[in-house]
Design a protein around this nucleic acid. Structure first.
Lengths: 187, 187
DNA sequence: TTATTAATATACAGATGAGTATATATTATG
DNA sequence: CATAATATATACTCATCTGTATATTAATAA
């Protein structure tokens, strides 16, 4: 567990989010991380490799964070679903929020054959399945449909917020989520 | 109105969508368009300039298309809102659909000071206002709120569809839109 | 036909991109 | 202390990036 390796991952993640992936050169990454290219390529076999690990870490961090929030603040499964958007709000309004990594990555790597695109799509699917699970546990019949709706709403809200900070979109996303959850609960 | 200028715009738009903006060099654009860099720079003062015009054209084309669809297929304002998602579906399931240009552009140019990002944000806002107008004309009181919800849903659906073609997300986006419109209509 | 102007092609400049060969410093092990 | 292995630094290759200077062709005007 090299400390420098972690530093590179952290710096790369930050730069990718604030400047874009393709616009961030490895020279910039190592300069900010206070190391050299040789060290970077000792730890990662290519820039693509680094991108993939940054994405994987980011997604895991997000899911861990959300999981903890849900477990600490709710008891019953149905409560999780209802409070979900509160935590999404907390996440997107945090000062250091810079968008959802896999959404941006898929935009920068549109080619479906690209490894980065594939991982992004997988993470998107994984998030949807996470939501579907919450819905299932809450006893929703059409859990898959609701999870799709919620994921679209959430990704749209993230989009809106990263496009313009403080857009207020999340406020209406919460209302919409409540309506959709209520509707799905009644069937 | 140079034919070559139009050709360059068309080719650039295509390449930006399929390979990404930053990953597409001007050399590639002129090669595909069958011309040279000198000609490109006679018509556009920089690559950024070309990007901005491609974005502007794309957005206008989309809005013109949607407008025509709505005007040709609906009569009453409330009908427009109800059929909106049908046309969005038609748009995202078209074989040559490659995503919403301004969404991708804002991901590739995350810096809020960037001209490309600014234009993307403006187009996003413009689309939302277009939806708000539809809602207002349909007699919805909270037109702004509904338009935000619909735009998030639509952008989320576009995201889902460009992430994975044939995802089926749009089907549930339509159901969600109907629920949200109905709810907003009742207040 | 000749002079002038506009458009195109070739070739280049200078910066930056990813990735590596070689050399030095550091650390662990005998 | 000496030796082997690992991590870091310097310096480089080669490709590609945006943008331009110059040369050549095509078209227009006198």
């Amino acid at each position: 567990m090299s400390a420098l390796r972690e530093k590179i991952l952290h710096v790369a993640s930050d730069l990718f989010q604030t400047r874009g992936i393709n616009s961030t050169g490895v020279d910039t990454i190592v300069a900010v991380a206070g190391t050299t290219k040789m060290t970077l390529y000792k730890h990662f076999k290519s820039k693509e490799d680094l991108i993939l690990e940054v994405l994987a870490r980011g997604h895991q961090d997000f899911e861990n964070w959300l999981n903890e929030k849900l477990n600490q603040n709710t008891k019953q499964p149905s409560e999780k679903l209802q409070k979900l958007l509160d935590f999404i709000e907390e996440w997107v309004t945090a000062p250091d929020f810079r968008g959802m990594a896999f959404i941006k990555a898929s935009a920068e790597f549109p080619n479906e054959e690209s490894a980065v695109h594939k991982l992004s799509a997988e993470q998107s699917k994984h998030f949807r399945m996470y939501l579907a699970n919450l819905a299932k546990e809450a006893g929703i019949k059409e859990a898959e449909g609701l999870s799709l709706q919620l994921s679209m709403l959430i990704e749209g809200a993230i989009q809106a917020e990263q496009m313009k900070r403080g857009s207020g979109a999340i406020k209406y996303a919460k209302k919409a989520a409540k309506i959709l959850i209520d509707t799905a609960s009644k069937t």
